[in-house]
Design a binder for these strands. Structure first.
Lengths: 154, 154
DNA sequence: TGCGATTTAATCGCATACGATTTATATAGA
DNA sequence: TCTATATAAATCGTATGCGATTAAATCGCA
């Protein structure tokens, strides 16, 4: 026990970094999803956007960005691609022309229905309970990091 | 209790996706590291490469890629940048000229020593034990996903 | 009312990821 | 030995992320 070693942090191995675990797990998810997403003709972030949009109609770019942890500089090009594919509608809000309201088209909703990821739970190698526990731990971690970043940010 | 709902997967909310938790936690780590890395003049992947290289001298691009879960198409440009900054040496292996051997320069080693991330443990909001547990869970998840992807891949 | 400050998207430039291909080198087998 | 195959890295094109800036619309407040 008591692994409160006196080693300096700079001697820690990459394999022990939580940030690297998350970084590489994210790459691994992308690769695991690849066959499914190729079949749908979507990239990973495009897929996330479709899911986020399916939860609520008429979101602005900002509110979608809050859900996805992205901003307009990343979202705008992505949404334009989804629009060109016919899955998304983008229109200026009439009550505030600065905002752009985004929603799924019928084709977008059909795509969302087709995009079940049941088969991926198996790929995680986790039983449903561990899956949920891990999911919540990672969400808590993320939210703590965001808080810390926003505090140091101002 | 008993959340084994009959809802189809396509009705799951984005916030419940493990893949999205990992995706967004990775973004959050990048932002949390930003001030530190800016100070060092490194990007996040460059920092990871420096740490990976500090663990072992004279790794080939392939072996470094295995550690980092990346391939030469991503690593080569990144390593060339680190070389241009003076932190890394790249040279063809004499015994097999197809391979390129990479190692840290003295400046690279000094940078590695300066790059302590102690202060980030605080940002995770986790005590050391939870930190280690979560780290291991995420690593296991990653390795399961990689296995699953490589199986379906052939 | 009018005008400076703020807000929202979009744009631009740079740095990853990554599939597909290319180039150079090494290996294996006839 | 000679050549077909295999392997390692690099190159190229596309799609994110993201800091910095810009453009347009709205707001705040004298």
């Amino acid at each position: 026990m008591a692994p409160k070693s006196e080693k300096t942090q700079s001697n820690r191995r990459l394999a022990d970094f939580l940030c690297f675990a998350v970084y590489s797990a994210n790459l691994a998810f992308g690769r695991a999803y690849k066959p499914l997403l190729d079949h749908l003709g979507l990239t990973y972030p495009q897929y996330i956007a479709i899911v986020a949009l399916s939860e609520e109609d008429n979101q602005t770019v900002s509110s979608l960005g809050e859900k996805m942890f992205l901003e307009s500089n990343t979202l705008t090009p992505l949404l334009k691609k989804l629009e060109a594919m016919g899955y998304v509608r983008r229109q200026r809000a009439v009550e505030d022309e600065r905002q752009v309201v985004v929603s799924l088209t019928e084709a977008g909703r059909r795509l969302r229905e087709k995009a079940t990821t049941t088969n991926l739970l198996k790929a995680t190698g986790l039983d449903p309970e561990d899956f949920r526990k891990l999911q919540r731990s990672v969400v808590t971690l993320r939210d703590n990091l965001i808080d810390a970043a926003s505090e140091s940010g101002e």
